[in-house]
């Protein structure tokens, strides 16, 4: 049954493709696309920073082992690394917990990577460094989101943070190869530390600009809604906006429609292309300035099947 096979290829295959695509889509998107708005209902949660009691001796050991070679044994800085004296424990904790420090190699750009030490060790080091100077700087915060208002947080985020981190928290490139990082995997403590201490190119926002209450609202918004967005409507495309949407619209939207046209219509014009036709005989590259006059004056040939 070659005829049957040909037919099934021409029709059943596209049908199967559509069915497969739809079912695949249902499989892939089903969990993500059941908009459960209930999920955004806030349950006031009390989040304490770790209750770890800092061990300054252990902190000193780790500091001497890892940091002192560049920053100096009492964190006084060196030609290749800045002084850490006067920086608060919050600053040190942020740079350690984000993996920016220690650097991959001396002189390298700080890059986000898994932290070298665990939470308790980071705190030990941070408290040790903070203890090296009389000025205590910004401490490691305890973030309490009880009663935080994500709506206020959203407003602050749109006003202050979105300009660099984008409104969806995806992050973007600043000048000079520096990036505003994605906020999708940052912790509550890190957000507060970053806002208050301004790591790298980020401004630092004192309580005169973002009050403590606003900051906890902001942290609540980032950790609840930026990191776990209510995302009905399907695949989110990375939250980078209309360019990604445009590619989907063009290559999948228009593309599928063109495929449908390709299926319905004839693939190649019947018969040999470019055969010299009477009436319009040019097959070459140039203009066909010749053969002036109205067309169709040479019609009426003997192409009828049967004259009666």
């Amino acid at each position: 049954m070659r005829r049957a096979r040909w037919f099934s290829r021409r029709l059943a295959v596209p049908a199967a493709v559509v069915i497969a695509a739809v079912s695949l889509g249902m499989l892939v998107w089903w969990p993500a696309s059941t908009p459960s708005l209930a999920g955004t209902v806030l349950t006031a949660s009390v989040t304490k920073s770790t209750n770890h009691k800092p061990n300054l001796n252990l902190g000193k050991t780790l500091f001497d082992e890892t940091c002192a070679s560049c920053h100096g044994s009492s964190a006084e800085g060196s030609a290749v690394a800045p002084s850490l004296q006067g920086l608060g424990a919050g600053t040190i904790d942020l740079w350690l917990s984000s993996g920016w420090m220690p650097l991959a190699a001396p002189g390298a750009q700080p890059a986000r990577k898994p932290p070298k030490y665990d939470r308790a060790q980071n705190i030990d080091i941070a408290q040790y460094v903070a203890s090296l100077s009389n000025y205590q700087g910004f401490p490691i915060p305890k973030v309490n989101l009880k009663g935080a208002n994500v709506a206020n947080g959203f407003s602050v985020f749109a006003e202050i943070c979105a300009a660099c981190h984008t409104i969806t928290g995806a992050g973007d490139a600043l000048s000079g190869g520096i990036i505003a990082p994605s906020l999708h995997d940052v912790s509550k403590t890190q957000i507060v530390e970053a806002v208050r201490t301004g790591p790298g190119n980020m401004p630092r926002f004192s309580s005169g600009v973002i009050s403590n209450a606003q900051l906890s609202d902001l942290v609540a918004y980032v950790t609840r809604n930026i990191q776990h967005p209510t995302s009905p409507g399907g695949l989110g495309l990375g939250g980078v906006g209309p360019v990604a949407e445009g590619f989907v619209g063009l290559f999948i939207g228009v593309g599928l429609c063109v495929l449908a046209a390709f299926w319905i219509g004839d693939r190649t014009p019947r018969g040999p292309l470019g055969v010299e036709q009477h009436g319009d005989g040019e097959g070459g590259s140039g203009g066909d300035g010749g053969s002036p006059g109205p067309v169709g004056d040479d019609g009426g040939s003997d192409r009828e099947i049967q004259h009666v």
Partner: peptide, 15 residues
């Protein structure tokens, strides 16, 4: 299909 599967212009995230 696109309307069901792919999110476009999630304005609630933009505000």
């Amino acid at each position: 299909l696109l309307g069901a599967l792919v999110q476009i212009n999630p304005i609630w995230q933009y505000g």
